[in-house]
Amino acid sequence: MSETLQTTALTLPKSGSIESYMQSAYSIPVLSADRERELATRLFEQNDLQAAQELIMSHLRFVIHIAKGYSGYGLPQADLVQEGNVGLMKAVKRFDPAVGVRLVSFAVHWIKAEIHEYVLRNWRIVKVATTKAQRKLFFNLRKNKKRLGWFNNDEVNSVAETLGVSAKDVMEMESRLSNQDQAFELNNDDDDSGATSNFAPAQYLEDNQSDLATIVEDANWEAHANKRLSTALVSLDERSQDIVKTRWLTDDKSTLQELADKYEISAERVRQLEKNALSKLKNAMTL
């Protein structure tokens, strides 16, 4: 049902503006209490999607009103409204007319919850509120702020007492809200004149793994070394080649005794042959 409800709400226009959407939303009549109860009953008891659509459409103006209260976070108004619409649809789906309250009173929690989640996800690149206390502070700190700048001790204690959190939480959130995100790269409008005001981490952070010259050089050396090793192996007699390969160049390595049994010689003799072969390979690789 939730997927169907999502298609019934008035979506923001792909072309045009948020203003035209608002005009459309405000042109939809507000439902009377009796009509709202009738529609809610039909949805609750009969799963009537037409009733759900009318309930949603008639309350879009209320979502706009709530979304305007979050304009101070610098996020697109259209996105705030759209997230609020998701909350409205969730509220309509769960609304029980037998409770005896208007839908708008029930839906406000769901609308704000969706907008809150959107703000927390998008207001900063790095999350500023993760715990319950921090989330409460994030949305209430500005309301309790009496002046610009940092809080003094009395203000910190007052806010902490009002919101039911510790003074340490208040000071930490105040610090987070006062910081600004730093872009990794310069904007297109910035120049590279070297001015101290125009800098970004991408200008001074080195990524050694992205050094194309080093990558090519390492690849060439590896190919050269492999070629030298293959040539050196060919210079060994067949038995010495087998000993080196089975002792060093395969995943399933042979023991000295296994090779001794294979060639009907002592394990010490295999060790001597291995040592001599490795010495020859080392000399060939260093020429």
Rank of each mutant, 00 (worst) to 15 (best):
L10R: 12
L12K: 00
E19V: 09
S24Y: 08
Y26T: 09
V30K: 00
A40I: 04
A40N: 00
T41M: 04
R42V: 03
F44L: 08
Q46A: 14
A52D: 11
I56L: 08
H59K: 07
R61W: 12
R61P: 07
V63Y: 03
A67Y: 01
Y70Q: 10
S71R: 07
G72V: 07
G74R: 00
A78G: 14
V81G: 08
V86Q: 02
L88C: 03
A91E: 06
L103C: 07
A107M: 05
A107R: 03
W110V: 07
A113W: 13
I115H: 04
I115C: 03
V119G: 09
L120H: 12
L120S: 06
N122D: 06
W123A: 14
T130K: 01
T130E: 05
F139D: 06
N140W: 02
L141I: 14
N144A: 04
D154F: 02
D154V: 12
D154W: 02
V156D: 01
L163G: 07
S166E: 15
A167N: 03
D169N: 08
M173S: 04
A183Y: 01
E185H: 03
N187M: 09
D191N: 11
D192W: 00
Y204F: 14
D207M: 06
A213E: 14
I215L: 06
K227G: 01
L229I: 14
S235D: 08
L236R: 05
E238C: 01
D242L: 05
W248C: 15
W248H: 12
S254V: 10
Q257V: 12
E258D: 13
K262Y: 13
S266Y: 12
A267E: 14
V270R: 00
R271I: 11
K280S: 11
L281D: 05
N283D: 07
L287H: 07
